[in-house]
Amino acid sequence: MRFGIFIPQGWRHDLVDIDPADHWRVMASLAQRADEGTAWESIWVYDHFHTVPVPSEEATHEAWTLMSAFAASTGRIRLGQMCTCTGYRNPAYLAKVAATVDVISGGRLEMGIGAGWYEHEWRAYGYGFPDAPQRLRQLGEGVEIMTRAWRDGEVTFSGREYQVDGAIVRPLPLQQGGIPLWVAGGGEKVTLKIAAKHAQYTNFSSDPETFVRKRDILHSHCAAIGRDPREITLSANFSTVVAATDAEVADRLDAIEARLAPYLGDAIGGYMAEYRSGAALVGTPAMIVERLRALQAEGLAYAIHYFPEHAYDRTGVDLFEREVVPALR
């Protein structure tokens, strides 16, 4: 199994109580630490503008600005977004931005892409909020534009959502064949069909039953177009809290709740439900290895982990690196 790790950027209220002037220092230090080790293949950020589960005035650092900064300040680790919202940026422009970041990084960029969902954010930034069919058309056309741009260095495209007329996208990415595409989302009729046609990676639910269903639907779409499904790596994201004992796990959850409660108010219960209900990846190293191994048997090959304590306490990440990664790699 391969492993990625999210760098806290504020979106999930994961930089609260840290002076905004120090945010980049914290993010950069965590990215550089991951870069210097061997446990993590990739670092990730979210493509969002406003915090969740409630919009607030807490900082949320922009994903592609961070991609460029990480590209220049790391040397080994791969760089991804989970996931870029097609509707937030013209896809020809996005192809240009991504190609530039790939060059800065020396060919280490991953391209996460999806249809978007955060309605409050869309409307706040003046994008409206197109219905799901339109957002999915944007995704399909955007992926087509980007892949052509990275292949040819120039793209002309006339679709329902986007029109591009001779957009020159140079420099080309350094990676042969273009930047690897991660099509995120589990939409069974459209998103997974786009993934079957274009993706090198998918990213959908880590719930075991749902994961298996989405995997099978993806494979059926691959069969329909004659593509070998083994060409697509299956990934999932995990909200992860790990400690040596059950008692220490409980202490970590209490500390997370205490830190966030002043900022989330009544939403704190819903936020913590993921961690306290078993939906998140919470427990001792042995418990976490068992859960990941079960998904690995169903085809999971790449696990990307979000540690809510990461900016404040790295001991959980250290424990994961020492005891979980070697057991599964």
Rank of each mutant, 00 (worst) to 15 (best):
I7Q: 13
H13N: 15
D14R: 03
D19H: 10
W24H: 01
W24K: 00
R33T: 09
E36H: 08
A39N: 06
S42A: 15
D47Q: 14
T51G: 10
V54D: 11
T60F: 06
H61T: 10
A63H: 07
T65C: 12
S73H: 14
R76M: 07
I77H: 05
M82S: 14
M82L: 15
Y88P: 00
A92V: 07
L94T: 02
A99W: 02
R108A: 00
L109T: 11
L109Q: 12
I113L: 11
W117Y: 14
R123C: 01
R123W: 03
D131G: 02
G140T: 06
E141M: 03
V143E: 10
W150F: 09
D152E: 15
F157T: 03
G159P: 04
Q163D: 15
D165K: 00
A167S: 08
I168M: 12
V169I: 09
V169H: 00
Q176A: 14
P180W: 11
H198G: 03
A199E: 12
Q200D: 07
T202N: 06
E209I: 05
R213Q: 10
H219F: 12
I225W: 09
R230T: 14
T233C: 10
A247L: 07
A247R: 13
E248T: 00
V249A: 04
R252N: 01
D266A: 15
A279P: 00
E290D: 14
R293T: 08
L295R: 14
A297L: 03
H305N: 08
F307L: 05
H310Y: 04
E323N: 03
V324W: 14
R329S: 15
R329K: 15
